[in-house]
Design a protein around this nucleic acid. Structure first.
Lengths: 247, 247
DNA sequence: CGATCTGTTGAAACAATTCAAATCTGGTGG
DNA sequence: CCACCAGATTTGAATTGTTTCAACAGATCG
């Protein structure tokens, strides 16, 4: 099974060999590649697949008529998304590949069977969806209550912790393919202001983005600065591996 | 069956007599009343029930350590919520009764059975949850991309349309139990600014709140002013009853 | 009938945006 | 290998949207 997916799902529960085999098979059957900058799901497209991110970065995005856009979620390796396609008929937003992306696109029916079988795997898929929604709520809090500095700092914490979960952090650094414009459309502020806030964060020695790499010298301090509380990620197993302690 | 719940679920599909009986039974078994101003679900409480709003107004809310709060969702009659309790172990936010509230609190197991049975009712419950999430995404867009005027106008549209769905609109008016402070914590702006924006909306003759009643003389114009597009509510049946046409 | 929320308004302060221009960066083709 | 280009980042100055503070009027409720 895909490394990131295994690490991710095992934060919820451990699986039987049977479950492991099943998910491994699903993830090799229908693998698709998307080039950086292309759309994975188009707004108003028919809702056909449940998707599993195997590699790369993507985002959900809604465009307004006048060209404004809001990035609604970041999708990282190991993320299961669009489970709502079990019941919805069409997409109400776009999913966009930021980097080159590898995805398993699984038709609705096999997933429905897994969920109805009440296996641990089915529960884990639903848990994934539930945490996606908890993250969506946290982004709502971010946009509604926090100022620009806290919003950016909080986002950096979240992504860093999520990447650490799937083993994509090296020491205090990780990949960072997002531009300042992208960050602006996540945080609901202008790109110019993102630039100034990132400068302030850098000057406070809390985090630094340079050459598509994010470095957080002291995650604990960055978490304090943004009131980051990882309860909302609903990580149940081996909690020592995330949070404050290294590795 | 509760009137609002029936109207709501039938926007997704029609039910067999068997389904109708089942849901009616569940909704009479475990009915609880909450007084206005009390908490229905407390942050970090064990996640035990799936809830169905039978009557009244409630909201989801997250508090930050320093006292700021963000209202994350409005829950109206007919809304099924906290379906994520099928997999999550504890709440990451509060649910608060705005008015007196009547709720059916259903344990996890019977709901799991309904969903796994793959009946229309089970799909309808999942559809409810999926639309709740779509609304959460739309609120994220609202906070991230729209200015104060558009945010408030968009919210008024949404609530009015949702209330109309469950037959709680009289002509161009509906109940409005929220204070300007509440609106502030939904829209992520200060209460003072809410007041000024509401004045502007009133002066533009788009909507008026007076004495706990909201009046929207011309919904179509208010929808235009806030770029309100009801796709995100995923209403599939009898679409003529909502949207622009009256009744 | 006073006490306590809720709503309203003005003036000053602040956060964030806009516009514009300069610099830096990575990739491309000559 | 260098010149060039487009996109990304950085900075300053003027402007706008929003907040804060403060004071008062209007409701609502025991």
């Amino acid at each position: 099974m895909n490394q990131a997916l295994r690490l991710k799902l095992e934060r919820f529960t451990h699986f039987s060999q049977q479950d492991n085999d099943l998910i491994a098979r699903l993830c090799t059957d229908r693998v698709r590649e998307f080039a950086a900058g292309t759309d994975i799901v188009s707004e108003r497209a028919d809702a056909k697949f449940i998707n599993i991110m195997l590699d790369g970065w993507a985002w959900r995005c809604r465009y307004l008529e006048d060209g404004r856009r809001q990035i609604l979620a970041l999708l990282l390796a190991g993320d299961v998304f669009d489970l709502h396609n079990l019941v919805l008929r069409r997409a109400d937003h776009t999913v966009h590949a930021v980097t080159a992306v590898t995805i398993a696109q699984i038709p609705v029916e096999p997933i429905r069977e897994i969920i109805c079988s009440n296996s641990r795997l089915g529960l884990a898929l639903q848990w994934q969806e539930a945490t996606n929604i908890a993250i969506q709520r946290e982004w709502t809090v971010n946009l509604g209550q926090r100022d620009a500095f806290e919003r950016i700092a909080h986002l950096l914490c979240e992504v860093f912790v999520r990447l650490r979960l799937i083993g994509q952090v090296r020491g205090d650094s990780c990949d960072w393919p997002l531009t300042q414009s992208d960050l602006a459309d996540i945080a609901g502020i202008s790109a110019v202001h993102v630039n100034r806030v990132l400068r302030d964060i850098r000057l406070a020695n809390l985090a630094d983005i340079k050459g598509r790499v994010l470095t957080i010298p002291n995650l604990e301090r960055l978490m304090e600065a943004s009131q980051f509380d990882l309860t909302y990620l609903h990580l149940y197993l081996e909690e020592d591996r995330v949070g404050l302690s290294e590795r």
